[in-house]
Amino acid sequence: MSATILYWSVTLAQIALGIAMILALIRMIKGPRAQDRVLGLDTLYSNGMLLMLVFGIGTGNSLYFEISLIIGALGFVATVALAKFLMRGEVIE
């Protein structure tokens, strides 16, 4: 019973996060300006991080936690660098 509940909730959460990643990807592709694309990339990163955490619950493997921490750190650095580039035209001045 508890295994069934866990299986279906993990599957539904994976489907919802997959749809969320597709919506962020659509906004990143067709976003009218550059800041919309950067915001779509940031949302894609955070949704991928959450999807890795849900994978970790589904498989019972603690390795996915480290993958999701790396994705979060890389998403932060990427968004900060892109915002700096949009502001100044240079990343490192």
Binding site: L6, V10, L12, A13, A16, A20, L23, R27, T43, N47
Partner: peptide
Amino acid sequence: DLPLWAALLIAFFLLIGAGLALIGSFGLY
């Protein structure tokens, strides 16, 4: 071997979290 209350709590928090992420991305779209 998971107890039922733990499975219900995990399902509740998982669906809350994934649903809020989906609503946020739908708003972004």
